[in-house]
């Protein structure tokens, strides 16, 4: 059992070992069983994953080498031409990449910090605790079309609540067409993003907090540690698996961000809020540049892998 890895090296050694250990017939069977067990566990997942994620995605890799409108017989093989175009020639892709980075910094830092804070606060025994938890999570359950509508109304320059409130509190001069100006549009969508995404890390952190043994806190209390020291020395380290998940997912989501931008600004004004994923969508489904859109999708995938996988690996290494 302990030397599993050595055993698995190859069948050539088996006779030798069999000579040492009897009975000879059982050992290969047990070994086969041991080798097969993990794969049997993973079989359903692997089948579905290969058939319905890997296969479609790999076929899109082939598409990314073409110039094609998706329907006609007129397909031209352009090699890496689409990638070249994205990296060196496409001003919108450059805006999009910049926006993705801004989005990433804001929507990873703020919802994670806020979610952690709220999770710790709501892990205590407080009156109305369940209500608070549900309320904070509530924006996250809204369907996309609803979020788009609610916030388009809030930001509306003529009847929106944001401008009205600014006027009530005497800050009317800051009233603005939030989503309609290139300076404020991305920031306005980010606020919505924070609103919608904070419940998720909170939920994960709440689950993570349950795994921290009470004795740890008691020991800290006996040592006379204050709130902050306890939080830093016990809560934060114990939440490590959750940090990994929250940050990695936040980063990946930020590279892929599509829904909110698409529904709130449609990438405008003047493409100032395009992200890689909205630009991919425009190309694939509005401009019918299937090849170019597929190439953009691969750029997105590679960037998020480059960002997230090393992080996940280093954090979960055993």
């Amino acid at each position: 059992m302990l030397h599993g890895r050595e055993h698995a090296a190859g069948p050539a050694r088996v006779p030798e070992r069999a000579a040492v250990r009897a009975p000879a017939r059982v050992l290969p069977l047990a070994k086969a069983r041991r080798v097969a067990t993990p794969w049997l566990f993973m079989l359903p997942a692997l089948l579905i994953y290969l058939g319905f994620l890997v296969y479609p995605v790999v076929s899109s890799l082939a598409l990314s080498l073409l110039r094609w409108d998706g329907l006609s017989a007129d397909r031209a093989f352009v090699g890496l031409g689409n990638y070249q175009e994205i990296l060196f020639n496409d001003p919108v892709a450059r805006i999009a990449l910049r926006n993705n980075i801004v989005w990433m910094v804001a929507t990873v830092l703020i919802p994670t910090a806020l979610g952690l804070l709220l999770a710790v606060a709501l892990n205590q025994k407080l009156p109305g605790r369940n209500f608070f938890r549900s309320a904070i999570y509530a924006p996250g359950v809204l369907p996309l079309v609803a979020v788009g509508l609610i916030w388009s109304w809030l930001y509306n320059p003529t009847f929106g609540l944001v401008n009205q409130v600014l006027e009530w509190v005497g800050l009317g001069r800051f009233a603005s067409g939030w989503l309609g100006s290139p300076e404020t549009a991305l920031g306005a969508v980010i606020v919505t993003g924070i609103w919608q995404r904070t419940g998720f890390p909170m939920l994960l952190y709440l689950a993570g907090l349950q795994a921290i043994p009470n004795e740890q806190y008691e020991a800290a209390r006996i040592d006379g540690a204050g709130r902050w020291e306890t939080f830093r020395a016990i809560t934060l380290p114990w939440l490590r698996p959750m940090h990994v998940i929250v940050v990695a997912l936040g980063v990946i989501e930020a590279v892929k961000v599509f829904d909110l931008i698409y529904s709130m600004t449609n990438g405008g004004p003047a493409w100032s809020t395009q992200t890689l994923a909205t630009w991919m969508y425009f190309n694939m489904f509005q401009y019918f540049n299937i090849g170019y859109g597929s190439a953009l999708a691969w750029v997105i995938a590679v960037i998020s892998i480059a960002f997230a996988i090393p992080y996940i690996r280093s954090m979960v290494r055993r």
């Binding site: 388009s152 109304w153 930001y155 509306n156 320059p157 003529t158 009847f159 603005s176 067409g177 939030w178 989503l179 309609g180 100006s181 549009a185 709130m264 600004t265 405008g268 004004p269």
Partner: peptide, 21 residues
């Protein structure tokens, strides 16, 4: 034109019209 109209959806653009603004 109503200020800030750039990101307003065409549906919502009717509201000031319906309300006489």
């Amino acid at each position: 034109i109503v200020p800030g109209f750039l990101a307003v959806s065409p549906d919502d653009a009717r509201v000031p019209f319906y309300q006489g603004q």
